[in-house]
Amino acid sequence: MLTKRIIPCLDIKDGRTVKGVNFVELRDAGDPVALAKLYSQQGADELVFLDITATVDKRKTLVDLVTQVAKEVRIPFTVGGGIGSVEDVYSLLAAGADKISINSAAVAQPVLVDTLAREFGSQCVVVAIDSRQMDGIDWVHTHGGRKSTSLQTRAWAKELADRGAGEILLTSMDHDGTKAGFALELTAAISGALTIPIIASGGAGTMIHFKEVFTSGKADAALAASIFHFKEIGIPELKMYLGDEGVVVRK
């Protein structure tokens, strides 16, 4: 049976992991490759690297990092952050990334999704949506959730699927950082309406939240960052728990 996926997300700046990662197992907690290998050994199903490097000239650092990860890590990984052109995508895929994730660039230029899907195949095109609710309606936001748009989240997700996106990484900005659980209703609505996989993100605080997002939230995968980095939840225990609760996971 196809399993539900657990995906740790690593924030990268200038080729290093940021966000106070604290692992006694690692000599250098800022080394993304070492952290990626550790998560992979612990049973992470995939990894996401989100590059938050501000400057374009640091792009080469990211490509070098992707090469290292591809050489040493034996599970699939996605690279996102600041990707805006076919050339960006080409260099990351050529370096060994399995998938790329675009966000603001898809909003600014939706046809980029079609182009990437045609050029590289839908399987490697993940489109991230940052969503925030206002007066009961879910709106797409960009620039880390700071900038609002005139796009409604559900309609935008449908458009992305029609344009050839392979997966949707849906982050609820209202839930992100709260540790109060994922946005179940929104995730379920989008997952139920589309035939492509949905990765839910934002709000993970307990193991129960993961169970909820896979059952009532109908998510195909769940992404989290700090709860894994700060070891509030270990991936092996999370998978054990989910398995006991009847959620099919890889062990």
Binding site: L2, T3, D45, S122, Q123, G192, P197, D220
Partner: peptide, 17 residues
Amino acid sequence: IPSASGQEKVPHVGWNS
């Protein structure tokens, strides 16, 4: 062909045994 229930999507993406 996606299952009628919509539970199983296409493409088949992820870990399976």
